[in-house]
């Protein structure tokens, strides 16, 4: 199998997804053997920033014109572009307050000098360029990333998780935080693939992997209210990782 040219990039984010790749540890040698990594600023100081790439792996959200230009340059030199992490896929935490006026936000945080910063409302990669594959997660799951890359190398469409966190939670026989009414668990709304890590520790799902297909936001909101949680708390919880905020927007647009 020929080794494809690969670039791994970070836009605005915590770099946690690139760290997951570096943390593959014993399997990192397999990654190096399979991929010809030509451009990976976080891991190497010897990079080729101009070569054509078979595969670009991009983490982080677009939060500035600089991010946007960089993303467009990456897209132009790459055959396949993969978005990794909830920021790249949904806008992530930075996009939770997407409705507030940007210049107001900048003034609130930095005062008058804030005006000079290059900053734009947080956007996911797919809002700017074509994305061939989304691997969500905060951070991404190592297994999902490796199998996704393996599938791409074999010319297959990667098998992405499509079921909600609840399914994996039940498979492990964890106590249900919703039926026990102890927490605002976002399990039924959230894309699985994490093996229900948080509910397994009796912590309600925070929705970090983004929404599952056909998430029933209205019914879950009604359930939370029935369980004694306030509308504001529910709204805050839902918008933390942006994806559900996007779904809520779609719902309200459908209604209007």
């Amino acid at each position: 199998m020929s080794r494809p040219n690969v670039g791994i990039f970070g836009l605005t984010g915590c770099a946690g997804d690139q760290l997951v790749i570096l943390n593959c540890e014993d399997r990192f040698l397999h990654i190096i053997a399979a991929l010809n990594i030509r451009d990976f600023a976080m891991a190497s100081s010897d990079n080729d920033s101009a070569c054509d790439l078979d595969l670009a792996i991009v983490e982080g959200a677009v939060l500035s014109r600089r991010d946007e230009e960089q993303l467009e340059r990456i897209r132009a030199r790459s055959r396949i572009l993969v978005a990794i992490g909830t920021c790249a896929v949904w806008g992530g935490i930075a996009a939770m307050d997407g409705d507030t006026d940007r210049s107001q936000l900048v003034r609130d945080i930095y005062g008058e000098c804030g005006e000079q910063f290059d900053t734009t409302p947080a956007r996911a990669l797919h809002e700017i360029v074509g994305v061939d594959l989304n691997i969500s997660g905060c951070p991404i799951e190592e297994e999902e990333f490796l199998s996704g890359i393996s599938n791409l190398l074999n010319g297959d469409l990667p098998i992405a998780p499509t079921t909600p966190v609840c399914a994996e939670c039940k498979m492990r026989e964890y106590n249900c935080l919703l039926t026990e009414r102890v927490d605002m668990c976002l399990g039924p709304l959230t894309l699985g693939g994490c093996n229900a890590r948080c509910p397994g520790l009796s912590i309600g799902c925070v929705g970090c992997r983004g929404p599952v297909d056909d998430a029933n936001l209205e019914s879950v909101t009604a359930l939370f209210m029935e369980n004694g949680f306030g509308r504001e708390d529910i709204a805050r919880k839902l918008r933390t990782f942006a994806g559900l905020r996007v779904v809520a927007h779609t719902l309200s647009e459908d209604e209007s």
């Binding site: 199998m1 393996s150 909600p164 609840c166 039940k170 709304l189």
Partner: peptide
Amino acid sequence: LSCGNCSMVCPTCYCYDVADEVKLG
């Protein structure tokens, strides 16, 4: 909620999916 809890816990639900997991490289 389409959460699937009812079928995960059902003693007679038997639907399954089949997938190939490829080893890297």
